[in-house]
Protein backbone atom coordinates (compact mmCIF):
# COMPACT_ATOMS: atom_id res chain seq x y z
CA UNK A 1 0.00 0.00 0.00
CA UNK A 2 1.35 3.42 -0.97
CA UNK A 3 1.33 5.89 1.90
CA UNK A 4 1.40 9.61 1.16
CA UNK A 5 4.39 11.32 2.76
CA UNK A 6 3.19 13.57 5.60
CA UNK A 7 5.35 16.61 4.78
CA UNK A 8 4.57 16.60 1.07
CA UNK A 9 5.09 19.94 -0.70
CA UNK A 10 1.66 21.67 -0.71
CA UNK A 11 2.28 22.84 -4.29
CA UNK A 12 2.85 19.29 -5.54
CA UNK A 13 -0.01 18.03 -3.42
CA UNK A 14 -2.35 20.63 -4.92
CA UNK A 15 -1.24 19.87 -8.48
CA UNK A 16 -1.94 16.17 -7.94
CA UNK A 17 -5.30 16.95 -6.38
CA UNK A 18 -6.31 19.27 -9.24
CA UNK A 19 -5.15 16.78 -11.84
CA UNK A 20 -7.49 14.25 -10.32
CA UNK A 21 -10.38 16.66 -9.77
CA UNK A 22 -10.28 19.13 -12.64
CA UNK A 23 -7.66 19.19 -15.39
CA UNK A 24 -9.16 22.49 -16.56
CA UNK A 25 -8.39 24.20 -13.27
CA UNK A 26 -4.93 22.66 -13.25
CA UNK A 27 -4.35 24.17 -16.68
CA UNK A 28 -5.70 27.56 -15.57
CA UNK A 29 -3.43 27.50 -12.52
CA UNK A 30 -0.34 27.38 -14.72
CA UNK A 31 -1.31 30.70 -16.30
CA UNK A 32 -1.31 34.13 -14.72
CA UNK A 33 -4.04 35.15 -12.34
CA UNK A 34 -4.77 38.39 -14.16
CA UNK A 35 -4.71 40.81 -11.23
CA UNK A 36 -2.34 43.75 -11.14
CA UNK A 37 -1.51 46.43 -8.60
CA UNK A 38 -0.30 49.99 -9.19
CA UNK A 39 3.47 50.04 -9.41
CA UNK A 40 4.41 51.62 -6.08
CA UNK A 41 1.30 50.56 -4.20
CA UNK A 42 2.95 48.46 -1.50
CA UNK A 43 5.78 50.95 -0.99
CA UNK A 44 3.30 53.77 -0.37
CA UNK A 45 0.77 51.78 1.65
CA UNK A 46 2.74 51.99 4.89
CA UNK A 47 2.94 55.80 4.78
CA UNK A 48 -0.73 56.17 3.81
CA UNK A 49 -1.85 53.91 6.64
CA UNK A 50 0.24 55.61 9.32
CA UNK A 51 -0.98 59.02 8.18
CA UNK A 52 -4.59 57.80 8.34
CA UNK A 53 -4.08 56.38 11.83
CA UNK A 54 -2.47 59.62 13.04
CA UNK A 55 -5.29 61.70 11.53
CA UNK A 56 -7.89 59.56 13.30
CA UNK A 57 -6.01 59.86 16.58
CA UNK A 58 -5.97 63.65 16.26
CA UNK A 59 -9.72 63.70 15.58
CA UNK A 60 -10.72 61.16 18.23
CA UNK A 61 -9.61 61.96 21.76
CA UNK A 62 -7.94 59.04 23.43
CA UNK A 63 -10.37 57.26 25.77
CA UNK A 64 -9.06 57.14 29.28
CA UNK A 65 -10.52 55.19 32.16
CA UNK A 66 -12.82 57.17 34.50
CA UNK A 67 -10.33 57.00 37.37
CA UNK A 68 -7.41 58.36 35.34
CA UNK A 69 -8.16 62.09 36.00
CA UNK A 70 -8.60 61.37 39.72
CA UNK A 71 -5.29 59.56 39.82
CA UNK A 72 -3.59 62.45 38.05
CA UNK A 73 -5.08 64.94 40.51
CA UNK A 74 -3.91 62.81 43.39
CA UNK A 75 -0.40 62.57 41.97
CA UNK A 76 -0.38 66.36 41.58
CA UNK A 77 -1.35 66.80 45.23
CA UNK A 78 1.48 64.53 46.29
CA UNK A 79 4.06 66.95 44.85
CA UNK A 80 5.93 68.55 47.84
CA UNK A 81 4.68 72.13 47.39
CA UNK A 82 1.05 71.09 47.04
CA UNK A 83 1.35 68.48 49.79
CA UNK A 84 2.72 71.12 52.19
CA UNK A 85 -0.08 73.55 51.39
CA UNK A 86 -2.66 70.79 51.78
CA UNK A 87 -1.19 69.74 55.14
CA UNK A 88 -1.30 73.38 56.38
CA UNK A 89 -4.93 73.71 55.37
CA UNK A 90 -5.77 70.42 57.09
CA UNK A 91 -4.04 71.52 60.32
CA UNK A 92 -5.94 74.82 60.30
CA UNK A 93 -9.25 73.08 59.67
CA UNK A 94 -8.56 70.59 62.49
CA UNK A 95 -7.63 73.37 64.95
CA UNK A 96 -10.71 75.39 64.01
CA UNK A 97 -12.91 72.34 64.43
CA UNK A 98 -11.40 71.61 67.85
CA UNK A 99 -12.07 75.16 69.05
CA UNK A 100 -15.64 75.09 67.81
CA UNK A 101 -16.29 71.85 69.67
CA UNK A 102 -14.71 73.24 72.86
CA UNK A 103 -16.69 76.50 72.94
CA UNK A 104 -19.84 75.65 71.11
CA UNK A 105 -23.30 74.77 72.42
CA UNK A 106 -22.20 71.23 73.05
CA UNK A 107 -19.20 72.28 75.14
CA UNK A 108 -18.68 70.79 78.65
CA UNK A 109 -20.68 72.65 81.42
CA UNK A 110 -18.88 75.11 83.72
CA UNK A 111 -17.70 73.40 86.91
CA UNK A 112 -17.29 76.63 88.91
CA UNK A 113 -19.87 77.57 91.63
CA UNK A 114 -19.69 81.13 90.32
CA UNK A 115 -21.30 79.89 87.10
CA UNK A 116 -24.45 78.86 88.98
CA UNK A 117 -27.48 81.12 88.95
CA UNK A 118 -29.05 82.35 92.18
CA UNK A 119 -32.07 80.24 91.44
CA UNK A 120 -29.94 77.12 91.10
CA UNK A 121 -28.16 77.81 94.39
CA UNK A 122 -31.43 78.48 96.18
CA UNK A 123 -32.96 75.33 94.82
CA UNK A 124 -29.92 73.30 95.86
CA UNK A 125 -29.91 74.70 99.38
CA UNK A 126 -33.61 74.13 99.85
CA UNK A 127 -33.30 70.55 98.71
CA UNK A 128 -30.20 69.77 100.71
CA UNK A 129 -30.59 72.07 103.72
CA UNK A 130 -30.52 69.16 106.13
CA UNK A 131 -27.15 68.11 104.82
CA UNK A 132 -25.70 71.41 105.91
CA UNK A 133 -23.99 70.69 109.12
CA UNK A 134 -24.10 73.74 111.38
CA UNK A 135 -20.66 72.93 112.56
CA UNK A 136 -19.34 73.16 109.03
CA UNK A 137 -20.92 76.55 108.60
CA UNK A 138 -19.50 77.66 111.92
CA UNK A 139 -16.06 76.36 110.96
CA UNK A 140 -16.34 78.08 107.62
CA UNK A 141 -17.34 81.25 109.31
CA UNK A 142 -14.44 81.02 111.77
CA UNK A 143 -14.89 83.52 114.59
CA UNK A 144 -17.55 85.31 112.64
CA UNK A 145 -15.16 87.39 110.53
CA UNK A 146 -16.03 85.51 107.40
CA UNK A 147 -19.74 86.07 108.04
CA UNK A 148 -19.05 89.75 108.26
CA UNK A 149 -17.07 89.60 104.99
CA UNK A 150 -19.96 88.11 103.07
CA UNK A 151 -22.51 90.34 104.73
CA UNK A 152 -24.27 87.90 107.10
CA UNK A 153 -25.82 89.71 110.06
CA UNK A 154 -24.05 89.26 113.41
CA UNK A 155 -27.31 87.99 114.90
CA UNK A 156 -26.69 84.69 113.07
CA UNK A 157 -23.80 83.93 115.36
CA UNK A 158 -24.09 85.07 118.92
CA UNK A 159 -22.00 83.83 121.83
CA UNK A 160 -20.76 80.79 119.96
CA UNK A 161 -24.28 79.63 119.18
CA UNK A 162 -25.90 79.59 115.81
CA UNK A 163 -29.34 81.07 115.32
CA UNK A 164 -30.66 78.76 112.65
CA UNK A 165 -33.69 80.79 111.67
CA UNK A 166 -31.53 83.83 111.21
CA UNK A 167 -29.03 81.77 109.21
CA UNK A 168 -31.65 80.42 106.81
CA UNK A 169 -33.01 83.89 106.17
CA UNK A 170 -29.51 85.22 105.71
CA UNK A 171 -28.44 82.40 103.38
CA UNK A 172 -31.47 82.92 101.15
CA UNK A 173 -30.48 86.52 100.67
CA UNK A 174 -26.82 85.69 100.21
CA UNK A 175 -25.12 86.26 96.86
CA UNK A 176 -23.83 82.91 95.40
CA UNK A 177 -20.37 84.37 94.90
CA UNK A 178 -20.23 85.36 98.57
CA UNK A 179 -21.44 81.93 99.58
CA UNK A 180 -18.53 80.41 97.67
CA UNK A 181 -16.02 82.38 99.79
CA UNK A 182 -17.25 80.60 102.92
CA UNK A 183 -15.94 77.23 101.76
Amino acid sequence: MNEKPKDMNPKVELRDELRALSPLLEQLKSGKEGFQVPETYFQNLEGELLERIQQQERRTPVRTPWWQPLLEQWQLLLQPRYALALASVLVLVAAGGYLIVRTGPGAAPCQDIACLTAEEVRSYIETNIHDFDTRTILDAGGAGDAFDDVGLPSSVFEEGELNEDELLDALESLDPEDLETLF
Binding site: L28, G31, K32, E33, G34, F35, Q36, V37, P38
Partner: peptide
Protein backbone atom coordinates in the same frame (compact mmCIF):
# COMPACT_ATOMS: atom_id res chain seq x y z
CA UNK B 1 -7.50 48.78 -15.38
CA UNK B 2 -5.76 46.53 -12.87
CA UNK B 3 -7.02 43.28 -14.38
CA UNK B 4 -5.43 41.83 -17.48
CA UNK B 5 -6.61 38.23 -17.26
CA UNK B 6 -8.17 36.44 -20.20
CA UNK B 7 -11.75 35.29 -20.74
CA UNK B 8 -11.24 32.11 -18.74
CA UNK B 9 -9.74 33.96 -15.77
CA UNK B 10 -12.63 36.42 -15.75
CA UNK B 11 -15.08 33.52 -15.95
CA UNK B 12 -13.34 31.80 -13.05
CA UNK B 13 -13.80 34.90 -10.87
Amino acid sequence: PYFDGDKLQAALH
